[in-house]
Design a binder for these strands. Structure first.
Length: 194
DNA sequence: TTATGGATCTTCT
DNA sequence: GAAGATCCATAAA
């Protein structure tokens, strides 16, 4: 399978967020390889975006967000869940793309091991859910998504055309008016429509 | 079918 | 000590 070039990840997060739609996210587990098509993303910008974790400066928690594009940023939230981000832009810019939803395309039976639901729709349609589904935790923070075999991204097997819906982000309390959430039109594996 | 609140931990103030 | 880029069970209508 064909990996994404490093140049792609060096773009700014609002552009990268749209380009990640339709790409495939892979995760190696003890039970086999899991793959999913990225159906929903959100961009977090380095400037004038106060809901971005990097907006308050570098800290122990968000330091991998300041790496250069192509590194993973995983953090723990609300006491129970992880969220998975792809760092974008140049080193020290402090921006990232949050992956909010996937469509399972490989190793679906393995995902059922990690997720306690029977409905395929509920396996990966949310940031916390897809981290459970792919067994992503804090140990996945700071992984190089271009070179790693544990966690990486590839071009889809078949190119397909789809329309991108642009809307506002979910679950934040600052900079809520910015149109930085993107998803594939008509796809059922998104966390929320409209 | 929609609305609400609890779970539960890391980080920063 | 409080807030947070969430999820799910339970309650109400």
């Amino acid at each position: 399978m064909k990996r994404i070039s490093k140049q792609t990840f060096l773009k700014s997060s609002d552009i990268l967020a749209k380009e990640m739609l339709g790409k495939t996210l892979w995760r190696k587990t003890d039970f086999g390889l899991i793959g999913g098509k990225i159906t929903e993303t959100e961009a977090y910008l380095s400037k004038n975006d106060f809901s971005c974790h990097a907006s308050t400066g570098k800290s122990k928690r968000n330091e991998s967000m300041f790496e250069e594009g192509g590194i993973s940023y995983v953090y723990f939230i609300y006491g129970c869940y992880f969220c998975f981000n792809i760092v974008s832009g140049e080193k020290d810019s402090g921006e990232a793309v949050l992956i909010r939803a996937l469509e399972p395309i490989a190793g679906t039976e393995i995902i059922y091991n990690f997720r306690n639901t029977k409905r395929i729709m509920d396996l990966t349609n949310g940031p916390g859910k897809l981290c459970q589904a792919l067994n992503i935790d804090k140990s996945c923070n700071g992984i190089n998504l271009i070179t790693s075999d544990e966690l990486f991204i590839s071009e889809p097997e078949q190119k397909e055309d789809f329309e991108i819906i642009t809307t506002t982000r979910i679950g934040i309390t600052k900079s809520i008016d910015l149109p930085l959430r993107f998803y594939i039109k008509g796809n059922e594996f998104v966390s929320k429509k409209t």
